[in-house]
């Protein structure tokens, strides 16, 4: 077992879930409640990682965050180091890659909150942000749990994007799935088998957890 990879993977998944909680909640609220027609475009872009091969997404992220891109250069001028092939770069990629898994259950969940409760909140003098925090989010707990579990699990399982953007640097970007690939390449089937079995067990537990949450009334398996 590559415990270093396990630790890194959990750290990455936790950080991705935390960052997405900040981004996905307002984004999902906007998508669920806006009347603007072009929100369809945003919805489509958010859903892209569901259908795009991870290598394609990874390629664009590699180019977009590389030392020659404006973002890459800005980052280097800010921190002195590159963005690609680092944990931070991997985190940015993970956040984008897992965005639909966080946003879609939240949109479904938010849209399921009785619109009159939001109107009652507005009539009582509260802003949309306050309504989101005080009414919509508290009434969407199953959706929030689904989103968190899916994001975490999806990040744990990602491979293509990690390989493209992160590479294979022990303790920095080598996640569990890269470690398995590495072991197989080195013909170390015992190590690959142990790690794979662990990941299989983990995924199964996560799915059981998610489905039991959904059965308790939480909507939100991603709509591809």
């Amino acid at each position: 077992m590559d415990w270093q990879a396990v630790g890194l993977t959990i750290r990455l998944a936790a950080a991705t879930t935390a960052v997405l909680a900040l981004i996905a909640v307002p984004l999902a609220a906007w998508l669920a409640f806006t009347r603007r027609r072009w929100s369809v475009v945003v919805e489509g872009v958010v859903a892209l990682p569901l259908v795009l091969p991870p290598t394609v997404l990874g390629f664009y992220l590699l180019v977009g965050m590389g030392s020659r891109s404006p973002i890459g250069r800005w980052w280097e001028s800010l921190t002195g180091g590159p963005l690609v092939f680092t944990f931070t770069g991997l985190l940015v990629a993970s956040v984008l890659y897992s965005l639909p898994f966080a946003v879609q259950p939240l949109v479904a969940s938010f849209a399921g909150v009785d619109p009159r409760l939001r109107e009652a909140s507005a009539a009582l003098g509260r802003t949309s942000a306050a309504t989101l925090a005080r009414v919509v989010v508290p009434l969407s707990k199953p959706g929030l749990a689904t989103a968190a579990v899916l994001t975490f699990a999806h990040t744990v399982g990602e491979f293509g994007v990690v390989l493209m953007v992160g590479g294979n640097i022990a303790g920095e970007t080598r996640t569990v799935s890269i470690s398995i690939y590495d072991s197989v390449q080195a013909l170390d089937y015992t190590a690959a088998g142990t790690t794979s079995a662990t990941l299989l067990g983990f995924s199964l537990i996560v799915l059981l957890l998610t489905y039991s949450l959904q059965r308790r009334g939480g909507p939100g398996w991603p709509r591809a």
Partner: peptide, 10 residues
Amino acid sequence: ARRRRIGYLF
């Protein structure tokens, strides 16, 4: 609505 200072009963 939030700035009209109304009470609304649904």
